[in-house]
């Protein structure tokens, strides 16, 4: 089915808080895309919710920009909040 557009599939698992990208599928339209995503990606009890989005609508960073975009954060360890003492009374953080 070469004429069917490509869709990216995002699944929220039963215990997950966020939808995660799991792969892509072809489908004729949005309704069928959700159904195809269900049939291809939730066969083993993986899902509680599905998002699909036309692949062409995803804007991505250019692979060539990797160095200027991401290398500068390599040596900024102070951006990880690991230097604080967490009081014992705080159970979740």
């Amino acid at each position: 089915m070469k004429e069917w557009p490509l869709w990216e599939v995002f699944i929220r698992s039963k215990h997950g808080l966020a939808h995660k990208h799991v792969g892509s599928i072809h489908a004729a339209d949005a309704t069928m895309a959700v159904e195809n995503a269900r049939d291809v990606y939730t066969r083993r009890n993986e899902g509680a919710s599905i998002w699909v989005v036309r692949s062409e609508n995803i804007v991505s960073s250019a692979p060539g920009d990797k160095e200027i975009l991401f290398d500068p954060s390599d040596d900024k360890v102070y951006r990880h909040p690991t230097f604080y003492e967490v009081p014992d009374e705080i159970e979740n953080m």
């Binding site: 069917w4 599928i25 072809h26 489908a27 195809n36 049939d39 291809v40």
Partner: peptide
């Protein structure tokens, strides 16, 4: 089946 998605379904 005519497409992978249809085969799975």
């Amino acid at each position: 089946a005519p497409a992978l998605e249809e085969e799975m379904a």
